[in-house]
């Protein structure tokens, strides 16, 4: 598990992907951060909502290669014939993508630090908001990993996860207008409604459990998907 994770992290930082994503993310935050700084507003927590939205663009690029590349290059054979369980392989891949996400998150901390320095006010809500952001990142990455397992084409994987994340993002709004059974189902997968609880400065225990279980279930589905593919087509 750690072996796979370590290799994958190394691979991220050897290619331009990690740096491009970090740069992109920082640029996006800066664009949103600047007006607030000018308006002397000290509520960084509202930016966390925007940061969640940026992840819809970042995560598909981050995760697109994670399993699809192994399938394309034939390295999947090496992983699958090694005495390591499939779940550990998938988990290792997830940890790798999550590590890059953590690096991005840590770098983004400079913005709240600037605010805390100038306003002198560190709020526990901000820490809670960041916890929500970390959990949301995990859930998003698991979706990306699942999408990457479904195809050997990285571009397709990126598009699938992008669409899936977008649907989840608007699920709340959609469910209100659709209503009925579909509406109910949509609220189940609405990650944003859970995340918004954090960005309002509330630490919701139910939301924490929801996001963690969501991630775990999607990773489990990823393992099932790969297993199923091996049995049906090979």
């Amino acid at each position: 598990m750690w072996t796979v994770a370590k290799r994958e992290i190394g691979s991220y930082f050897k290619s331009p992907i990690a740096y491009v994503l970090i740069g992109l993310f920082i640029l996006l935050i800066s664009i949103f951060f600047w007006p607030r700084l000018q308006g002397s507003r000290g509520d960084f927590i509202s930016i966390l909502g925007d940061m969640g939205f940026f992840l819809i663009f970042i995560v598909p690029i981050l995760t697109m290669k994670i399993l699809a590349e192994d399938r394309k290059n034939g390295t999947e054979v090496l992983l699958m014939t090694s005495p390591t369980s499939l779940f550990k392989i998938v988990l290792g891949k997830f940890i790798a993508a999550y590590t890059v996400f953590l690096v991005i998150t840590i770098i983004s901390l400079i913005y709240p630090i600037i605010i805390v320095i100038f306003s002198g006010a560190f709020t526990i809500q901000l820490a809670g908001g960041y916890l929500g952001f970390l959990l949301l990142g995990g859930a998003f990455i698991s979706i990306g990993v699942l999408a990457s397992a479904s195809t050997e084409n990285q571009i397709i994987a990126a598009i699938i996860s992008f669409v899936a994340l977008l649907v989840m993002w608007v699920a709340d709004t959609l469910s209100a207008s659709v209503g009925g059974v579909v509406g109910t189902v949509l609220t189940w997968i609405s990650l944003i409604s859970r995340y918004q609880v954090f960005t309002k400065g509330i630490l919701g225990f139910a939301e924490v459990i929801y996001l963690i279980s969501f991630t775990a279930i999607i990773l489990f589905l990823t393992v099932r998907l790969i297993e199923r593919r091996r049995w049906t087509q090979g």
Partner: peptide
């Protein structure tokens, strides 16, 4: 099944751990 972004030593030590 080779990872082309690794050197021979890096690759073999990855396989060793695996």
């Amino acid at each position: 099944p080779l990872y082309r972004d690794m050197t021979v030593t890096e690759y073999l030590s990855f396989v060793s751990s695996l």
